[in-house]
Amino acid sequence: MIRWLAVALATLTLTGCQAEPENWHGKDIQGLMPDLAFELKGTNGDTVTPADSRGQVRLLYFGFTSCPDVCPATLAKLRRAVNDMPDPLAGDVTILFVSVDPQRDTPERLASYAAFFGDRVVGLTAPEPRLRDLTKRYRTTFGYDEPDAEGNYNVSHSSAVYAFDRSGEARLLLRPDLTAEQVTEDLIQLASAAPD
């Protein structure tokens, strides 16, 4: 009981401390989520970890290349948001597109899909169990529909983008209802902050 109260108090205090006067359009998730960590397969077959984009502002997004509308719309919005950033900062943002459909998303397919949305996008995937671990870490999930006659199936996945600062700390959850302008403003603020 005392232990529980202590945890409750500690949590309340911590949450209280986070209420800084920062103004974000996205949802502030600092302290709520673990920092950026993954080991995934890149489009050239190499293993990719956060160290490959060290010091960058990272945007993590789960999707799949056969995604009819949500994924292209989100990635197009992110591309616009990053391109609208002032010059030196725009190069400091990496978009990590993690396909949760490794069966259909071959490295080639993922590479051309990522390239379509600009050179800031890195296409990544992994065998399903590893993807399950990663989505669990960020408290999201994905699921597959039954395939239709042509073998096409839909995939349910998170609709939000996770933003990590230069030191890899989880900072923002960008909900799908944000505009590209709002994302740009948040990204400028994130990228301008000095790394810890």
Binding site: G143, D145, S156, S159, R175
Partner: peptide, 12 residues
């Protein structure tokens, strides 16, 4: 409660 929307549902 849009968090379930944001984080993806277990099934559609």
């Amino acid at each position: 409660y849009d968090v379930y929307e944001v984080c993806g549902r277990a099934w559609p």
